[in-house]
Design a binder for these strands. Structure first.
Length: 309
DNA sequence: TAAAGTCCCCGCCACT
DNA sequence: TAAGTGGCGGGGACTT
């Protein structure tokens, strides 16, 4: 059945494995949290399981897991043991994460009752039927409600882990690790506005989330730092600071990445000229569009269009 | 593509 | 005291 999850505080992260686990799901938290980073204090990262020993993976090879759930603290009997441990961890103030189908574990543990959660879209119907008291949102990459975080399928676990890292260690470290993994620090289709912020002080972050949605709808506008800062009722300085904290990108970086994403779509699905596309996506000129496109994708817009049409 | 001009980013620090 | 805010300015990124 279900999956793995991590109880974390950045000093200590426990990932729960089980027999016939998908190695990808084990590798994702391992790649984000398990390796040393110069700007990050060493994390006590461990994989644990109910009964230590050899576990089969779905990829045909086996892994040895020495750690039992004692790392998660306490004792009793599986699988109730696992649920109890998770509850105990949550009571102690740990952050509890259910990646992919790991959301089922949190749900069985009763942690998600009355809360928002997500899981792999293919299991959304089953999940909703099984746990009617849980408010399921299958359209997001990951979702935080209080200290409980669930992520959607497979690769969304990466977005989720990077979100956790950004939250606890800051955007610089998170971006650095994202770069090392050769993935976008903040995926297009941006989930920022969907993250349920647990603390009341984040009214501003919510405003930024709304701003992100609005700018996407109005990319053609000639946005500037000042015009955007006014919209979220912040000074320039605070706006850039909050924006970076929330998304891991600077305002201009993000704007450019949004404009480039739309550029790609228009190149693929329309026959608009580069000039017309530049106009529609908010680049001041075709020259500017070409510069950014080339820098980001190492290919000219025209060449991109040719290969994708 | 090149270069001048403009705008942004972010460390710093005084001030809530 | 601790945490957040916002003006300032140099270096650098972006635009034309």
């Amino acid at each position: 059945l279900p999956n793995l999850k991590a109880a974390m505080s950045l000093q200590r992260i426990a990932v729960v494995a089980y027999d016939r686990i998908s190695p990808f799901h084990l590798a994702v938290p391992g790649a984000v949290f398990g390796e040393r980073h110069p700007d990050l204090p060493a994390i006590d990262f461990r994989v644990c399981t109910e009964i230590p020993g050899r576990l089969q993976t779905t990829a045909g090879f086996t892994i040895d897991v020495e750690q039992d759930l004692g790392f998660l603290r306490q004792a009793e009997r599986p699988p109730q043991l696992l649920l109890d441990e998770l509850n105990a961890a949550y009571q102690r103030g740990a952050q509890v994460v259910g990646l992919c189908l790991g959301a089922y574990i949190l749900a069985y543990a009763g942690l998600l009752d009355g809360r928002k959660a997500t899981t792999h879209w293919a299991y959304a119907q089953d999940f909703a039927a099984r746990f009617p008291t849980i408010n399921l949102d299958a359209d997001v990459l990951y979702l935080e409600d209080e200290a409980l975080i669930t992520s959607a399928g497979t690769a969304a676990a990466l977005d989720c882990c990077l979100y956790l890292l950004r939250k606890h260690a800051g955007p610089t470290v998170a971006n650095s690790i994202a770069r090392r993994l050769v993935i976008s620090p903040h995926r297009q289709g941006g989930q920022a506005q969907f993250i349920e912020q647990p603390l009341p002080k984040t009214a501003q972050d919510n405003r930024i989330g709304e701003l992100i949605g609005w700018v996407r709808q109005n990319l053609a506008h000639p946005h500037t730092l000042d015009s955007l800062a006014v919209r979220v009722l912040m000074s320039r300085r605070s706006f850039t600071r909050h924006f970076h904290q929330l998304t891991g990108m600077t305002v201009v970086q993000w704007l450019i990445s949004e404009r480039l994403a739309l550029t790609q779509r228009l190149l693929e699905s329309t026959s608009l000229s580069i000039e017309e596309i530049a106009e529609q996506v908010g680049f001041g000129s075709a020259v500017t569009l070409r510069q950014h496109f080339r820098k980001a994708y190492r290919i000219s817009p025209q060449a991109w269009r040719n290969t994708f049409q």
